[in-house]
Structure formats: C-alpha cells, structure tokens
C-alpha cells in the first residue's frame, strides 16, 4: 500500500510515521511537501504530529491553507483514508473535515506520557483489527488536546444517528480507497477512542487534558477520516513500551487490502 505523509513546515513526526510504515510495517510510503497540489497516487494520507507553522495563530490554522490541503479534502470527500495524528488532528479540525476545536489542556501545560484509550468502534478502517472495548496504551504529547465542541454538534457526534446517506453513497463511490461504511457503521457515534483508566473506566483522572466526553479520537460520519491526539507511531514496537499503535496502521492496511 502506498501511504503519503504530508510534511508542513514545522511537522516533526513525519519521519516517525515514515519509519513505522516503511521499516516496521514494510509498506510503501512517501513524504509529500505541503506545496504539492496532488497526492502522487497515494492510497492513504497521514497528517503527522508536530508544530506546523510553529502553532502560530492557532494550532493547524495556517497549515489548513497549504495547497496540499485542497487535494487532501478532495481525497477525503472521495472516500480516501485520512489519518490525522496530534497536530494532524488539529489541522483536520481547522479544515472542517472533522467537527470541533482544540483548547489548551486544562492544566495549561504540555503533557507527554502514556495514556489508556478505550476503542469505541471496531467497524472503522482504522480500528478493524481491534476488539470493541479493547484498551490501548498510547502516548500523548500536546499542549492543545482539550477537545471542545458545542452541545448540538456533540449530540450529533454521539448520537445513534444514521450516517448521512449522500455522504455514505459518495464514499461508496470512491475508487481510491474503496472503503465503504458497513451496515454496522450506520447509527454508531463518531467517537472512536476515549481516554480511560487501566480498567477501561472513564474517570476525570484518566482524562489528561479535559476533553469533552473524554474524546481522544473521532471520525467523520463516513468513517474514512480519523483524527486522534495520541501517537500510534510512537507505540508500534515493543522496544518503545507498547505495540498497540500498530493496530491502527494494520487496520488501515487491512481495509485497503480487502477493498
């Protein structure tokens, strides 16, 4: 599978994503400079973590104006798989591919440490290798990971609401990734990961940044765009203390392979 990793000025996890995809998972992967206007035939796109444009103005606010984001948006609307990690998630929010915004962590401090995530959905192309309720151990490293959204949007994210049919059919027409929302995907919430404790319970202590509803990762209604604050590329090898992050990349590979 050919992955494209978008590099903005200030991205700093692009090499780490490249390493996991190429050296650990033996996939084809390239870095795509933010000035690029097309995706060079990539079958999946990763927006890596970092500090695009130094986080100046607002995290992700300037990166979303990069030429490559038009191609990424078109690719996403066409059903292509887009994974935004940390700053990549923030860029997806700014681009409008995912709803909501990121506020400062409630502690007003940068936090780098391992957290536990509960897998809320296993019918997405990012989690099909996981078990429902599975607890993943991934690290976070961010200043602004406090997921914030207005009440109405939150309800629509959480609601057992059928996936918008026009978007679903648009996605199913997609030829790039071939991912089609399964029947099960309809009527489930967009929340894919929540911060939890070691037992899978949602507690205030287990929520590191104050995110509403403990949301750590969410997808678009069609399910082909995922943003998450924790770093799967930092936890994809036993030497780094956890291989759980590998499941997210392997899920993507599986869904692309069986498309």
């Amino acid at each position: 599978m050919k992955f494209g990793i978008i590099v903005f000025p200030g991205s700093n996890c692009d090499q780490d994503c490249l390493y996991v995809l190429r050296d650990v998972l033996k996939q084809s992967a390239v870095r795509l400079w933010h000035q690029s206007t097309d995706l060079h035939g990539c079958e999946a796109v990763v927006l890596p973590g970092g500090f695009s444009y130094g986080d100046y103005l607002r995290t992700g606010a300037i990166a979303r104006l990069s030429p490559v984001m038009d191609a990424v948006s078109a690719f996403a609307k066409d059903g292509g798989l887009v994974l935004g990690i940390c700053n990549g998630f923030q860029i997806l929010l700014e681009t409008g591919l995912l709803p909501g915004v990121m506020s400062r962590n409630t502690s007003l401090r940068f936090i780098c440490r391992f957290v536990n995530l509960r897998v809320e959905r296993t019918d997405t192309p990012f989690t099909n290798r996981c078990v429902e309720g599975q607890i993943l151990r991934l690290p976070i490293a961010h200043n602004e990971g406090n997921y914030t959204v207005d009440e109405q949007t939150l309800k629509s994210i959480q609601a057992n609401r059928p996936v918008d049919s026009s978007q679903a059919s648009e996605a199913s027409r997609g030829t790039r990734s071939g991912f089609r929302p399964t029947g099960k995907a309809r009527g489930t919430s967009q929340v894919v990961f929540r911060y939890c404790d070691a037992q899978g319970q949602l507690t205030d202590a287990a929520n590191p940044n104050g995110s509403i509803d403990a949301i750590a990762g969410l997808c678009n209604p069609a399910g082909n765009v995922l943003g998450l604050m924790p770093h799967p590329e930092r936890s994809a090898e036993p030497a780094l203390g956890s291989s759980d992050g590998r499941l997210i990349f392997e899920s993507m590979i599986q869904s692309l392979t069986h498309a």
Binding site: D16, F110, I111, C112, P139, R234, E237, A239, L240
Partner: peptide, 26 residues
C-alpha cells in the same frame, strides 16, 4: 512530562526510569 521526550521514537528508556537516558540507534 512537559518535555516531549518520545518524538523521533528512539527513547527506549523513559525519563525517571533509569540512571541515564537511553536511545536506540535505529
């Protein structure tokens, strides 16, 4: 924990866990 000590994915011993920091050479 205010320092990103994991970026570059070579930190095989996390801060506070050993007498010295250890980085793997990929």
């Amino acid at each position: 924990e205010q320092y990103d000590h994991m970026v570059q994915t070579s930190t095989v011993v996390l801060p506070g866990r050993a007498d010295a920091a250890v980085l793997r050479l990929k």
